[in-house]
């Protein structure tokens, strides 16, 4: 299924937020990187718009996909019911999931008939908001959304916290050394284990993956 409008740019690769790490990995380790997407990645957008505008107009996700497949949404940990009236501010955390099983799954669903059962954690439009001076929003992909959108996003590049990348590499070093064919940091060749020795400071790192089949 085509879930993205290809004409939309997800992220500028020349963004000044931090360094760019490009990796070519075997296709069979791609799913490992999806863990990073469920922890959250930054996107540079124009906040202060509705969830629909953010996801569809700015990030290129198709409206049908948002309406049909993304059934569970959290904004700053609050369950969202209406993607058109809910405004995403700067530094917000927006988590996207498919429909979930069970009573809890039905309860958390956007606009579901059981929404009242989680009233205490539902997003309300009068919730306090921060002035939107910056241009960064954290997105989290879960489950089917990761499976559907993850490959496109991660191939075009996602901004990660340096510590997040460091911890990921450290805890999966063996697999990454086996599964990574080559890596470049800002255009310079680098070995996977050398990533652990780099001080990225508090900056973000843009991780961009390409996959190749096992030879």
């Amino acid at each position: 299924m085509e879930n993205l409008n290809q004409s939309k740019s997800l992220n500028s690769t020349t963004h000044p937020l931090g360094m760019q790490l490009c990796m070519i990995v075997q296709a069979d380790v791609l799913a490992l990187f999806f863990r990073l997407l469920s922890q959250g990645f930054a996107v540079t957008v124009q906040p202060g718009c509705s969830i629909r505008d953010l996801l569809c107009l700015q990030l290129g996700i198709r409206e049908e996909y948002l309406d049909e497949r993304i059934q569970t949404i959290f904004l700053n940990g609050n369950a969202v019911d209406d993607v058109d009236s809910t405004i995403v501010e700067n530094d917000a955390i927006l988590a996207l999931s498919g429909a979930m099983p069970g009573l809890a799954g039905a309860t958390l669903r956007k606009g579901g008939i059981l929404a009242t059962m989680r009233n205490s954690i539902s997003h309300k439009n009068d919730m306090a908001s921060t002035p939107h001076t910056g241009k960064t929003v954290i997105i989290k992909f879960f489950n089917l959304v990761t499976k559907d959108l993850g490959p496109s996003f991660i191939q075009q590049g996602v901004w990660l916290r340096a510590k997040q990348l460091h911890d990921f590499v450290a805890s999966n070093l063996e697999i990454l050394e086996r599964g990574c064919k080559s890596a470049k940091l800002d255009g310079q060749d680098i070995k996977v284990n050398q990533i652990l020795g780099i001080d990225f400071g508090d900056n973000l790192v843009n991780l961009k993956l390409k996959t190749e089949s096992k030879s």
Binding site: A79, A99, M100, G105, K140, N143
Partner: peptide, 25 residues
């Protein structure tokens, strides 16, 4: 149906962990 036909077979019932955690519940 996406839950019974896709979500549960792919991830099992533990698919709920990330979502319930995100909800703070």
């Amino acid at each position: 149906h996406p839950v019974s036909g896709e979500g549960l077979p792919t991830y099992g019932t533990n698919v709920l962990t990330n979502v319930i955690n995100e909800a703070g519940a």
